[in-house]
Amino acid sequence: MKWDPLARKGLTGRLPEAWRQPLAVVGGVIAIVWLVVALAAPVLAPHDPLAQDLPRLAAPGPGHWFGTDQLGRDILSRVMHGARVSIPLTLMLVALSVLVGGLLGACAGYFGRWVDETIMRVADLVFAFPTVILAMVVAAALGASLTNAVLAVLVVAWPAYARVTRGLVLGVREREFVLSGRLLGFSAWRSLRVDVLPNVTGPVLVLATLDIGTALLLLSGLSFLGLGAKPPSPEWGAMVASGVEVFDSWWVATFPGLAILTVVLAFNFLGDTLRDALDPRTARAIKERAL
């Protein structure tokens, strides 16, 4: 049979093999652990993340395995509760970026002309700024809060999805099944919804999975700079920032930093796996070049 990128055997057909790669296993295990921690933090955490009832700046040891911070709060509990702040917000952020960028990009690609020009020029405008700087500017302009940090990252994150979606839509819209639908009297919206969008979602979702790590970095970066979460909130970026103030007590900054590292790593591994599973040709090419 002719190779057809659109005729995939469903995700289930290709994933099992990809999931056996060591990186996929590592990424999957870490991600699951973090999801469980996020869900069950109130049960799992040994202390109240906000209570200041432990000795201050105690080194890691029995009773407080990750040590305590300068206010006598248990860092392990704070890192665990931090997962409840960072992970859902990151996922929501990426979902919003996909939605906004995907829809705008799909419209640009499908309708063309001035719709395309307008949307893509705005996207170029955003691309022209360094991501972090622009996010900082937006967050600072909106005022420091976690919601505003999410909005700021959304502003800088959607153009990537718009570009990818637009390119894919341009390729699909001239395909014969789309033309057939139009000849049957589909409206432009129906054609876009029924024939075009379902055939571009795969690659966009891979990009989204790869992007979860970046989004988390950016979001906690803003908190680190004081533009996101406010002090008592156990947000990882903010915790690293407070750890910088007490540099000799290495545990204060290290453990929330490790939390960020592992989550980003896990989602990058998962994204790579998903990409390889969906596009075996690229995966094979990469492997051959590596050998």
């Binding site: 002719k2 659109l6 005729a7 395909r175 014969e176 099944f177 000849l183 049957l184 029924v194 055939n199």
Partner: peptide, 17 residues
């Protein structure tokens, strides 16, 4: 809709999804 067409490439003429 009185004119309908059957295209050349059978692998592109149906929506795979």
């Amino acid at each position: 809709t009185g004119i309908q067409m059957v295209f050349q490439d059978p692998y592109a003429s149906l929506n795979p999804r």
